[in-house]
Design a binder for these strands. Structure first.
Lengths: 152, 152
DNA sequence: TACTGATAGTCAGCATACTGAGCAATATCC
DNA sequence: GGATATTGCTCAGTATGCTGACTATCAGTA
């Protein structure tokens, strides 16, 4: 029987589990209440003002049914505005608020610290290698999930 | 602004997302309805007959509140038996059923195929490297999640 | 222009994961 | 032996992620 430690799927789950825990701990200690998912969405909204939800989902590889709830929570926290698009009445245009910008700025050190802690068992070179290999595996498997990455 | 692709947390989430999708696709095509989480639990129950839920959770690094539902579903599918322990009346002893054993045996090719597909963008050596680096990062971060791995 | 197909978003339902609380039973310590 | 702490499990609540279905709208075409 294959050991769990020989299963990339198991390792993937475990690494992600630790990554989320570290993120929440660092961000929480800094006094903020934002999940990794919400952070990525907020940062992407800031970088792409006025984008719609499907585009946002594609940029961070979230399912379109997931993005609805994430944006709900960002709006509820006052970090994002959602308004109907004038060009396409099906679409919602997303915009970061001043408060969202402020939170994003203040939270950055905690986020970067979290990224470092996730890799604390690795040397700098090993960390680079790990990220490179993950990127490569992810690129090859992009179309295999329901929510592939879609560059604009 | 750091790119998502420079964030180990983002890469972790994405790789795990693909891993789950691949697992479900392969196992589904083989005619089975079992999640990665349920598979790991079932395999661990088979390898450790009579273990209790907390021990099971520790062996695969699941939260104890998560394991309750996972075992519920394994029992409901007839793959696992849960009975009160005679030595400790708080504990539940878990046992795989004959049907569970049968499913586990039949499902193995699909599971192994899934593990290969997750790494299909990488050479054999790169796949080994990725797993080694993940194991190392995970070992260093084991205590950082609420559900660390606990060897018996 | 009417029809057809595709697209944006939402919703219900299910399965992880987690926080925090609580119950029952066991272990430990005085 | 009895108070106290710990442990095994469960539950309620919240947040991803997904499947599948549905509405509203848009785009292309006959």
């Amino acid at each position: 029987m294959k050991d769990n430690n020989d299963m990339p799927g198991h390792l993937a789950r475990r690494f992600q589990q630790i990554a989320v825990a570290v993120f929440l701990a660092e961000v929480g200690e800094a006094g903020f209440d934002l999940t990794p998912v919400q952070y990525a969405a907020l940062a992407t909204i800031k970088a792409n003002p006025g984008l719609d939800q499907v585009t946002l989902a594609g940029l961070i590889a979230y399912d379109r049914t997931t993005i609805t709830g994430v944006v709900d929570r960002l709006v509820q926290k006052g970090l994002t505005e959602r308004r109907a698009s004038s060009r396409d009445r099906r679409a919602r245009e997303l915009e970061i608020t001043d408060e969202g910008r402020r939170v994003l700025r203040k939270i950055t050190p905690a986020v970067e610290s979290a990224q470092a802690i996730m890799l604390r068992g690795l040397s700098a070179k090993e960390g680079e290698d790990l990220m490179r290999l993950l990127r490569k595996a992810i690129a090859a498997g992009n179309e295999l999930s329901r929510a592939p990455l879609r560059e604009v």
